[in-house]
Amino acid sequence: MTHAPSKVLVPAEDLRTFSAALLEKGGLSPEHALTTADVFVWAALRGVDSHGTARVPAYLELLAKGVANADPDIRIESTTPAAAVVDADRAPGPVALSAAADEAVRRARTTGIASVGVRRTVHTGAIGYYVSKIAEQGMVGLGFVAGMPNMGYTGVKGAAVATSPLAIAVPAAERDPLLLDMATATIALGKIRQARASGSPLPEGAAATEDGTPTTDPATAVMPLPLGGAKGSGMSLAFELLTSVLVGAPIFAAFHSDDPQGRKHRQNALLIAIDPAAFGDPDAFTAAVDTTLGTLKGLPAADGAEGVFYPGERSASVAVRRGEQGVPVAPKVWRELTENAEKLGVTPPAVA
């Protein structure tokens, strides 16, 4: 019996430097390459491997095909102090949304709350990263993203809306911030692919065939179904209005039209920063966040539960452990990274 090769362990800093070097060879500026690599390594550290360094080869492909713009002309448009639009010019999502998060925080320092839309970016990565950046500045961060339709909509035959995610980060005083990062789908597309590879049945109501018929068979499942049926459907549609339609770059309507341009990969986003200082004493706020989270954790755990956890708590502890021990990278991903490294003339780091 052959055993599957074990994951390689790479120190986080080495993984960040390596990923940035590959992305720079792929055409990004050193600054943009480092920003993009940082988003991937942040996700990998927290155990969100689907949005971790596995994304580097995919981004190299987006850059090589010209789907992502390696040299974007990013512009910030604004007519009012509390709102702006970042026109990304097809910049990679990590570049565009990092700029939007910085802009939202900068404006919210003056206005108490600020919204920054992102127009015409490509794959945003883990959106928890951007709201976490806002929380690091002592503010509450909210993020919404809309992308290409790849999920069912209650009552519609076939793929209708996107698995558009929502993320919320709330800073605390002593505890790790609350970080809610969720898609509007019951299950991620990557999980369907994993189930297909392993032959494992899918949960009831999580996925559907091409015509929208629910199935547990990973061989025939092609799209996820919305979380909570009409609730997830409605959230996804609302996020399209809050992002794409708001910034004048509709995706949903164009996708379902006869215009072939409507099928070109793109994403839009909206980030909001809220300064607790605008509502009262910011230190009292974070102390009360700690109390609230502590109260939750003090509630009696249900039978069989490992404990009581708030959103983002477990992934923060995974990040600490992986920061000390190294980031595990799946053999297939490591092979793809090293093959790209050989092609691009980049030396991979030493691994355990």
Rank of each mutant, 00 (worst) to 15 (best):
D259W: 11
N268D: 15
F255A: 11
D275R: 08
H256G: 08
P282N: 10
A284E: 09
G229I: 06
S233C: 00
P260I: 03
P250R: 14
I274P: 08
A278T: 15
T243K: 07
G232P: 10
G248D: 14
F239P: 00
S244Q: 03
K231D: 05
A277V: 08
H256Y: 04
D258S: 15
G228Y: 14
M235H: 08
A284T: 03
L246M: 12
L271K: 12
A269P: 05
E240L: 01
A253L: 05
G280Q: 07
L270V: 14
I251E: 08
G234S: 15
V247I: 05
A278K: 07
A253Q: 06
F252T: 11
G262Y: 10
F255E: 03
I274Y: 01
D259V: 12
S236A: 10
R263C: 00
L237Q: 13
A277W: 03
A277K: 12
G228L: 05
F252E: 11
D258W: 02
V247C: 14
L246W: 15
A284P: 00
A284M: 12
G234P: 09
S244G: 11
K231L: 10
S236D: 06
L225V: 01
G248Q: 06
G248Y: 13
V247S: 13
E240H: 15
A278W: 05
D258L: 15
G248K: 04
F279A: 13
A269Q: 07
Q267Y: 00
H265K: 07
Q267H: 15
L271T: 14
L227M: 08
K264T: 15
L227E: 05
P226D: 12
A238H: 06
A238W: 05
A238K: 00
G232F: 04
I272W: 02
A249G: 01
D259I: 05
L237T: 04
V247A: 13
D275G: 07
I274T: 13
A277P: 10
L242C: 04
I251M: 10
N268Y: 04
V245S: 12
D281K: 05
P226V: 14
G248P: 00
H256S: 08
